[in-house]
Design a protein around this nucleic acid. Structure first.
Lengths: 196, 196
DNA sequence: CCTACCGATCGGTAGG
DNA sequence: CCTACCGATCGGTAGG
């Protein structure tokens, strides 16, 4: 009876994953039931299973989509001919913009990946480790070049990545500054803190 | 039969809350069952209810304990005669040390407070808002004094508080630097990023 | 502190 | 896409 309204350029599955992102962000993966999701989408719970295999698959979709986007970005960027500081600047801005525009899926993938099970769990853990190592490599490059002061690179990565996830509170705050101002402020505080 | 082993200076309830911190951190509040908790403590699930009222009470204990510690700290510190930068330095170090030594309860209170229900939910949300405002106030003081460069104070607070929560990854990492080095690095990057 | 058990809700399936 | 329903598990209680 009630059909899933899929957007112009999207399959019904994509519509479901999008609704799942919003719910997982709001209530967490474990506290979200398939009946909650069905209600949000406008069908009965059983009907969801014509488009997806399991609740777990929804979390997989979200986590791997986000991981791929960040991984692709760091690879193309790292291949370019920028200085280390310029690379870090670009990485940070990409993270900020992603958090501003797709914060629900980014937050979910950051906070709920623990609820995946193998082999997806190990896969995501690996990707996250590789990403952080690559990021740290860029910082170490900058330290060698004397662009960046002598800090522990993994600690700097950890600070930058987690600082960005603070944008979630920015979304919730009443009187937000503009996304552009937010970006400039974050770059100013974080990148300046690294420079020699 | 099997009795709860309470530590020398702790009630049985405290033993249960401590185990709950570890489990809520590991699996999340919603995915942790009272049977999981009972097993960890060494009794049957029903027996837990001789010491606590509900699962929700455990989360309340954790969240309010952490909130009180941070609130007390900022109040005593803000009453002192330090410069703004010195206050921020001290606040940051308190956060770092707390995350290093009591990271399970700090992470749980940071990540799971959404699962509280009113009136506890509103209470915690208020406390968090007040804390951030007070922190931002100190930064604004520093901007007026020309100790700190002209940044958006709420954004700086958001960066600092979330950066600190990155210490969770530090705990999980194989080759950790020492807590002292971690602290010095975080202060170096974050506080230097604020200075004029 | 345990055994026994409650109603509610969960993720998911069968069959149309 | 829905109705009907499954076994499992949930938080919590009664009664000893």
């Amino acid at each position: 009876m009630a059909k899933i309204k899929s957007k112009k350029n999207g399959t019904k599955k994509e519509t479901i994953v999008e609704a799942a992102s919003r719910l997982f962000h709001e209530k967490g993966f474990s506290a979200t039931s398939m009946r909650d999701l069905a209600e949000k989408v406008g069908v009965e719970a059983a009907s969801l299973y014509n488009h997806i295999q399991s609740k777990s698959e929804l979390l997989q979709e979200i986590c791997f989509k986000v991981a791929n986007e960040f991984m692709t970005n760091i690879e193309t960027l790292d291949a370019g001919a920028l200085t280390a500081i310029e690379k870090i600047n670009a990485l940070l801005r990409f993270h900020i913009q992603h958090m501003v525009h797709h914060f629900e899926e980014v937050v979910v993938s950051d906070r709920e990946w623990r609820h995946l099970s193998d082999p997806y769990l190990s896969n995501i853990q690996n990707q996250r480790r590789i990403y952080r190592k690559r990021f740290a490599g860029i910082i170490e490059e900058g330290i060698k070049n004397k662009e960046i002061k002598e800090i522990d690179a993994p600690t700097a990565v950890l600070i930058i990545l987690h600082a960005v996830s603070g944008i979630e509170s920015w979304h919730r705050s009443k009187r937000k500054i503009s996304p552009e101002l937010l970006e400039e402020n974050m770059v100013m505080i974080l990148v300046e803190g690294l420079k020699k």
